[in-house]
Simulated assay, not measured.
Amino acid sequence: MTSKRFESTPPARRALMRQIRSKGTKPELYVRSTVHKMGYRFRLHYKALPGSPDLTFPGRHKVIFVHGCFWHRHDCAVGRKTPRCNQDYWEPKFRRNVARDALNQAGLRQLGWSSLVIWECEIGDDDILRQRIRQFLG
């Protein structure tokens, strides 16, 4: 049995990239479920705040972002990967993502909101995740 290799033509790559979501990702759903089980209630993707945070706790003036390591350039192994093809496109895109994240964080601070970023790679240990959330929201 041979493994099927992804065809790396522009139309195939475009089709693959269109399937990537910005809301309702597995890491986000996991964090939402965890926070809800901990007894906290929140709003989703509150557009009135900079960056439309994934989880918003209006009464506490706190938000949580769930960032994918690859897209938001975390310093883990996944976040350091860069596609070999079309680097003239990817490098500026990643820089824009990081700059936008920093701008959103600054905007939130200026409005008096605190934020927590949970990276995709940090979701594996449930106890540590719960501790971070409890410490942030407590």
Results as ranks from 00 to 15, higher is better:
Asn104Ile: 00
Asp127Ala: 10
Cys85Thr: 15
Asn86Ile: 14
Asp75Gln: 11
Arg14Asn: 04
Pro27Ala: 08
Ser8Val: 13
Ile118Asn: 04
Leu111Asp: 01
Ala77Arg: 06
Pro27Met: 04
Ile123Asn: 01
Phe65Lys: 04
Gly68Ile: 09
Glu91Ala: 03
Leu16Phe: 11
Ala12Gly: 04
Gly112Asp: 13
Leu116Ala: 03
Ala106Val: 07
Leu116Asn: 07
Ala48Cys: 08
Glu120Pro: 03
Cys85Val: 14
Thr56Gly: 00
His61Asp: 01
Arg73Trp: 11
His74Pro: 08
Thr2Met: 05
Leu108Ser: 02
Gln87Asn: 07
Ser8Trp: 13
Leu44Thr: 14
Arg21Val: 08
Arg43Leu: 15
Ala102Tyr: 05
Val78Tyr: 06
Ile20Gly: 00
Phe57Tyr: 07
His72Leu: 07
Gln19Leu: 06
Ser3Leu: 15
Val78Lys: 13
Arg109Gly: 00
Arg41Thr: 15
Asp88Thr: 12
Pro11Val: 12
His61Leu: 03
Leu137Trp: 15
Ile123Ser: 01
Tyr89Gln: 12
Asp75Pro: 14
Ile123Val: 07
Met17His: 10
Ile118Met: 06
Ser115Lys: 06
Glu28Phe: 08
Gln110Ser: 09
Arg73Gln: 12
Leu108Gln: 10
Gly59Trp: 11
Leu137Asn: 10
Ile133Gly: 01
Lys62Arg: 12
Lys37Asp: 12
